[in-house]
């Protein structure tokens, strides 16, 4: 399973590196969202600084939807999915691999967004480890839930409109606890921030487990 996951993740990342869709579409989109939030909340630095953690995670969520759609679009070519199934790769491996590829893209998005809120919104993070741990756990949860729902709506003609409706409510706990944890990391309130990791951690674990268990039946469908 793990070897299969590595293979699939490697394939997806290689496709991304060659096609540069993530680089030229997802990353600029994330930055655009930040700039638009700036417009919406006005130029006053205080409002932006207070809202920054929430805006950061909202931008990450939107990027997750894009990255997931892209991850499924790779597989939508003529016979691609059948090829993947014929290759005898474990469905759980496919799930983990695709989730890992999405996660790597999300890490790139978050590095850029992190720099963005520091530069644009003048945010100073006090407790770096808290922000990092929260980000890692959230990324795992986001990519697992995203790929799971991406596979669910793959092959449907209405997937562009359906996917956000399905994914965004599911990942709302990540938005809540991610932004709380980041607020705590910015203000330096470590104890209260660390308690939010108790939601991010189980969220990631649950959706990884559900994905590993259910990706098989889903793949047969699509």
């Amino acid at each position: 399973m793990w070897r299969d996951a590595l293979l699939v993740a490697g394939k997806d990342i290689r496709i991304e590196l060659r096609s540069r869709v993530a680089l030229w579409q997802v990353l600029p989109f994330a930055v655009l969202v930040l700039v638009l939030f700036g417009f919406a909340l006005g130029p006053g630095p205080r409002a932006l600084r207070v809202a920054a953690p929430g805006l950061y995670w909202l931008a990450v969520l939107f990027s997750t939807v894009l990255a997931t759609q892209r991850s499924m679009a790779i597989e939508s070519g003529e016979g691609t999915r059948d090829g993947l199934r014929l290759s005898g790769i474990d469905p759980a491996g496919v799930f983990l691999g695709k989730a890992a590829a999405v996660a790597i893209q999300l890490v790139a998005v978050q590095v850029l967004l992190g720099a963005g809120i520091v530069v644009l919104f003048d945010v100073h993070v006090q407790t770096w480890w808290l922000a990092l741990v929260a980000s890692v756990l959230a990324t795992v949860g986001l990519s697992a839930a995203g790929v799971l729902y991406g596979a669910l709506s793959a092959g449907l003609r209405v997937r562009e409109t359906l996917l956000p409706l399905l994914v965004l409510p599911i990942v709302a706990p990540v938005l809540i606890s991610g932004s709380r944890a980041w607020s705590a990391a910015v203000s330096g309130a470590v104890a209260s921030g660390a308690s939010w990791l108790k939601i991010l951690g189980p969220f990631a674990a649950v959706y990884l487990a559900v994905g590993v268990a259910l990706y098989g039946p889903l793949q047969e469908v699509a």
Binding site: L152, I170, L214, V221
Partner: peptide, 16 residues
């Protein structure tokens, strides 16, 4: 197909 897709969706949502 619809049945299987919906069953997975219901289970994932039920985790909530």
């Amino acid at each position: 197909v619809r049945a299987r897709r919906c069953a997975v969706a219901a289970l994932v949502a039920f985790v909530d």
